[in-house]
Design a protein around this nucleic acid. Structure first.
Ligand code: ZN
Ligand code: ZN
Ligand code: ZN
Ligand code: ZN
Lengths: 186, 186
DNA sequence: GGTTATAATGTTATATTATAACATTATCTA
DNA sequence: TAGATAATGTTATAATATAACATTATAACC
């Protein structure tokens, strides 16, 4: 049963890579063709950059691919580790400049409360990220709930505040982890 | 005209301390008796800790005072700089441990998208922070809008997600800065 | 095509924010 | 007062991010 459009996971300290993968599958649905959705995202990004007259360079495209490819939010230094193996002279600015570009064009979001970066499935209309973040398994899912957005705009309007980028990060328990906590066992 | 209950300001690079102070006054209202509201906050904190059977030590109280006293969010290392002048051997853990305590008891919030800390005016009922943050002058104001909260809970419920701590950080323009941008001059 | 301007990346160094690990001191309980 | 627990001191380092300047690639123009 798929609860979310898009599922990301944080690395979770207590889990082996195998457990991580297993949980990722649980959330992604076992039939999920990730290489397909990755390619779609990259094509969408290329089209968007062309339309805006900006350059999706090899580096920027590669960083976007890594961010999208991981099934989970990725830290800047995780990205850097991979890049170092691929191009000589990769350093923090290499990654952060690419991320700045991708952020500026809405192609990725930063999870502000935890630092890593995730690909945005809907970069065409710029928006602040709305995320559900599970405190147990680290899963993060992007919402785009217009009800939340409207409530925020209404509240801001009352205060005379003009809304630019609303950041919503809802920490709590995903359905899967609620079950495990309730059951207490297994 | 006061738009917000509580006003905080970030340090703003382009402004002299004088300008910072001037703007702070604009937002706080010139009649604001800050030492009064600071003392209230400290008393409230002391009562809350007594009630919960935890200790508001000298250090913790002092850090809370600094966070509350500044009229604006304060970085951990800003706090540390002050502490260093007051007690020998103050070091990052000194500050972070005090902040962890204050965060755990809802006495302060962390502005996740910018790292600094602010005192919470309403620590009795734990809540994630809802902040309006001006991207021009750095002002931050805490909301506690039940409409926003309800919209979030409704949306999360649809996804089967159990809400713990919702983080809302709305970046945009405060009323004052909207005027200045529109007017373009002055 | 060659020249010049601009954008992107490389490179080195450092700033900022936060935590780990273990020792010491203060406070509480009995 | 002894022993347990909580808080703080102390040293070192991890994790995240940016500054500053050099070099290289791309675009725009002639
Ligand atoms: Zn998005
Ligand atoms: Zn979970
Ligand atoms: Zn609060
Ligand atoms: Zn402003």
């Amino acid at each position: 049963m798929l609860y979310y459009n898009i599922i990301y996971r944080f690395p979770f300290p207590g889990f082996t890579p195998m457990q991580q993968a297993a949980q990722t599958m649980t959330f992604m649905g076992s039939g999920h063709d990730h290489s397909h959705c990755l390619n779609e995202a990259l094509d969408r990004a290329a089209a968007l950059c062309t339309k805006r007259g900006v350059r999706l360079t090899t580096l920027r495209r590669r960083v976007l691919e890594l961010v999208w490819g991981g099934h989970r939010p990725l830290g800047a230094y995780d990205i850097l580790d991979t890049l170092k193996a691929e191009r000589r002279g990769a350093a923090p600015p290499t990654v952060y400049r690419a991320l700045d570009f991708l952020l500026a064009h809405g192609l990725v979001h930063r999870i502000e409360s935890q630092n890593p970066f995730v690909g945005c499935p809907d970069p065409d209309k710029p928006h602040g990220g709305q995320f559900l973040i599970c405190r147990t398994c680290g899963m993060a899912a992007e919402l785009n709930d217009s009800g939340v957005d409207q409530a925020i705009r209404k509240s801001a309007k009352k205060a005379g505040f003009s809304v630019g980028r609303p950041i919503i990060e809802i920490q709590g328990l995903c359905p899967h982890c609620q079950d495990n906590v309730e059951g207490e066992g297994e």
